[in-house]
């Protein structure tokens, strides 16, 4: 699936998007896998209360299932308006 990063999450990880091969069942499982990859991921995902997640462009929670998901995005709380 495609994993996207925005704002300071993108800056901390260093890339805007990547293709990830994963069997993760939930968003949190995917976060655990990413944390294990490299230090920059562990730093970006250190405090998930500071993060929001969208699965297939719909806001959701970290315990949301990933079955069939094509796109997961991680970002800080939004600041539109």
């Amino acid at each position: 699936m495609d994993v996207l990063y925005f704002a300071w999450v993108r800056e901390r990880i260093g890339i805007p998007r990547e293709a990830v091969e994963t069997q993760a069942g939930t968003v949190m499982d995917l976060v655990e896998e990413l944390r294990g990859k490299e230090e920059r991921y562990a730093a970006a995902f250190a405090d998930i209360s500071a993060l929001r997640v969208a699965v297939d462009q719909q806001l959701t929670d970290f315990d949301a299932p990933l079955s069939g998901a094509r796109e997961v995005a991680f970002f800080p709380p939004m600041t539109g308006g």
Binding site: F6, A7, A54, P76, M78, T79, G80, G81
Partner: peptide, 8 residues
């Protein structure tokens, strides 16, 4: 749109 639209 301040806190539910994906702008940063």
């Amino acid at each position: 749109l301040k806190s539910r639209a994906p702008f940063w």
